[in-house]
Computed example of a mutant assay.
Amino acid sequence: MVALGCSFDARVDGLIKNRHGTYYSQQRVPERLQRAVVRVLKSSRPRQVSLKKTLGTKVLAEANSRAKPVLMEFDRTLPPLRLLRAQGA
């Protein structure tokens, strides 16, 4: 029995592949922090819905190993934003 549309590759959560085959690491920003992320990143957008960074590889195994530190960095970015939002800045 073959499952159509399913991939059996083991993948780290937060990995996406663009149309050129390059992997990116992406994490959704909670709605209550989206405006604070814009201020910290000095973006011209009204809201920042996700944090995204290229992993610079087209190989899934390399992308998995490169994604973990990037996702950890995203996790370190969000707690200070919670404090910034709590202070009303």
Rank of each mutant, 00 (worst) to 15 (best):
E73V: 11
K53H: 02
F8R: 12
F8E: 13
D75T: 13
V40M: 10
A10D: 13
R66I: 02
K42H: 10
R82D: 14
Y23L: 00
A63V: 10
A63P: 05
A63H: 05
R66H: 00
L55P: 07
N18C: 03
A61G: 12
E31I: 14
K52G: 03
K52C: 08
L71F: 00
D9I: 15
R11M: 09
L55A: 01
L60V: 14
V40C: 11
A67H: 05
K53I: 01
N18S: 08
M1Y: 09
N18P: 05
R85H: 07
N64A: 05
V37T: 05
L41N: 07
R19S: 08
A61I: 12
Y23D: 06
L51T: 04
R32W: 04
K42P: 01
M1K: 13
R82F: 11
G21E: 06
M72Y: 14
F74N: 03
P30Q: 05
D13Y: 11
A89R: 11
V59T: 15
Y23S: 02
A36F: 03
L4R: 12
S50K: 09
R11I: 10
V70A: 04
P69K: 05
R82E: 15
A61P: 05
T22C: 00
G21A: 10
R35D: 07
V12G: 10
S44T: 13
K53P: 00
V38E: 02
R39S: 14
T54M: 04
R85L: 07
F8V: 15
A63Y: 07
R28A: 11
P79M: 08
G56S: 02
A89W: 10
A89C: 09
G88P: 03
L41P: 06
G14T: 08
P80M: 04
Q48M: 08
S43K: 03
V29H: 00
V40N: 10
L41A: 09
K58N: 12
Y23K: 06
